[in-house]
Simulated scan of single mutants.
Amino acid sequence: MLERHEDHRSDKDVMTSTVLITGCSSGFGRRAVTRFLSERWNVVATLRDPARWSGERSERLQLCAADVRDENSVAAAVATATERFGRLDVVVNNAGIGLFSVFETTPMAAIEEVFDTNVYGPMRVIRAALPVFTRQGGGRIVNVSSGTATVPMPFQAVYSASKGALYNLSEALTHELAARNVGVTVVEPGFVPGTEFFATTYARFESLPTPEAYQPLVQATLGSYSTTPPPGYRATEEEVAAAVFDAATDRTGRLRRRVGRDSENLGRARGQDDTGYEAWRREFFTG
């Protein structure tokens, strides 16, 4: 059995480490930049348009134009990290897009865009970073997935499929890369309301066709997102950023970090045997 990766860097090393974070124009990515900077890390923050950056400025922050859908753009971002700071210790694959839609009428172009960003994008970043990690003797990959990778939700068939693919990629890589001292961790937030990501996802939904037959379930599903859960049930952007930082500095080889009690509950449900999970799934989606 392959051993889990353990991070043996000293506290001094951690303070001078460099992280590259994708998708930093808003949300989790922007919050993660702030968290890493507060911990005295060097940060390369990628976004398609650096002019959109509205976070803090620092001599330890390098903004970099990059699109994870473009292999050359990704390679240039990784090169920027090593040229500016001399090394690259962690990559955080945070860039992603959501999709809430009826699968039957979702255009293939929209499906391909989701997979190109949420699955192939992280693959491009990882492949660009691995030669750097090999030269340095190790590194860490943090992939931001979703609670829907554990329990897929209605009208998120494509999004859930992409995040499930990212999780499976990550788990497989923990074995492949262990001997090269490269660790892989997945962060799985639950639903985080009030974010630009959710607003953009909803706007995309409104632009796609929704057949009348699906309307009752669509409205019921959307209504579930607007309910007010108990305090602390849903994660905040800051909590997700904290989980990303914890994953980047992990010393235990832990594969998965769930953020938010909703994501934790999905994990517990999925941890049942098939009979127990089937009973939970029927009650959760029809109760």
Rank of each mutant, 00 (worst) to 15 (best):
residue 251 R to Y: 03
residue 46 T to P: 00
residue 176 E to C: 02
residue 254 R to H: 10
residue 96 G to E: 02
residue 213 A to I: 11
residue 125 V to G: 06
residue 108 M to G: 11
residue 25 S to R: 08
residue 225 Y to A: 12
residue 191 F to V: 13
residue 160 S to Y: 00
residue 104 E to I: 04
residue 201 T to M: 14
residue 174 T to Q: 12
residue 95 A to R: 00
residue 89 D to N: 15
residue 236 T to R: 05
residue 113 E to K: 12
residue 99 L to I: 11
residue 108 M to V: 14
residue 145 S to G: 02
residue 196 E to L: 10
residue 111 I to W: 05
residue 8 H to F: 14
residue 153 M to H: 10
residue 97 I to R: 15
residue 274 D to R: 14
residue 105 T to S: 12
residue 155 F to M: 12
residue 231 P to A: 07
residue 224 S to R: 13
residue 194 G to H: 05
residue 111 I to A: 09
residue 167 Y to F: 10
residue 106 T to N: 08
residue 2 L to G: 09
residue 76 A to R: 13
residue 205 F to L: 11
residue 161 A to L: 03
residue 283 E to M: 11
residue 125 V to A: 09
residue 50 P to M: 03
residue 6 E to G: 09
residue 211 P to Q: 08
residue 282 R to D: 15
residue 139 G to A: 07
residue 281 R to C: 11
residue 118 N to G: 03
residue 206 E to K: 15
residue 139 G to T: 01
residue 258 R to G: 03
residue 228 T to S: 15
residue 202 Y to P: 05
residue 25 S to P: 03
residue 271 G to P: 04
residue 138 G to Y: 04
residue 77 A to Y: 02
residue 248 A to Y: 01
residue 71 E to A: 14
residue 102 V to F: 02
residue 97 I to V: 15
residue 255 L to S: 13
residue 204 R to I: 09
residue 282 R to V: 14
residue 123 M to W: 12
residue 144 V to M: 02
residue 258 R to N: 09
residue 41 W to C: 01
residue 273 D to A: 09
residue 220 A to F: 09
residue 226 S to N: 13
residue 64 C to E: 13
residue 203 A to S: 11
residue 215 Q to N: 08
residue 110 A to G: 05
residue 3 E to Y: 09
residue 5 H to E: 10
residue 178 A to T: 10
residue 41 W to D: 02
residue 85 F to N: 00
residue 42 N to I: 04
residue 78 V to F: 05
residue 148 T to W: 04
residue 205 F to G: 02
residue 139 G to K: 01
residue 119 V to L: 15
residue 53 W to A: 08
residue 143 N to G: 06
residue 200 T to M: 09
residue 99 L to P: 03
residue 161 A to P: 00
residue 256 R to P: 02
residue 212 E to T: 11
residue 143 N to Y: 06
residue 79 A to G: 15
residue 133 F to E: 00
residue 270 R to Y: 07
residue 211 P to F: 08
residue 38 S to G: 14
residue 116 D to V: 07
residue 158 V to P: 00
residue 265 N to F: 10
residue 142 V to H: 07
residue 191 F to E: 06
residue 18 T to I: 05
residue 10 S to K: 09
residue 62 Q to N: 10
residue 168 N to F: 12
residue 161 A to H: 03
residue 20 L to Y: 04
residue 220 A to W: 11
residue 80 T to G: 05
residue 90 V to H: 05
residue 56 E to C: 10
residue 90 V to P: 00
residue 10 S to R: 10
residue 165 A to T: 00
residue 122 P to G: 05
residue 187 V to N: 00
residue 34 T to D: 11
residue 55 G to D: 07
residue 236 T to N: 07
residue 268 R to C: 08
residue 24 C to H: 09
residue 208 L to A: 01
residue 47 L to G: 03
residue 92 V to E: 06
residue 12 K to Q: 12
residue 282 R to P: 07
residue 77 A to M: 07
residue 174 T to I: 04
residue 200 T to Y: 04
residue 147 G to M: 06
residue 98 G to R: 01
residue 183 G to E: 10
residue 156 Q to D: 11
residue 184 V to D: 07
residue 66 A to L: 04
residue 122 P to M: 01
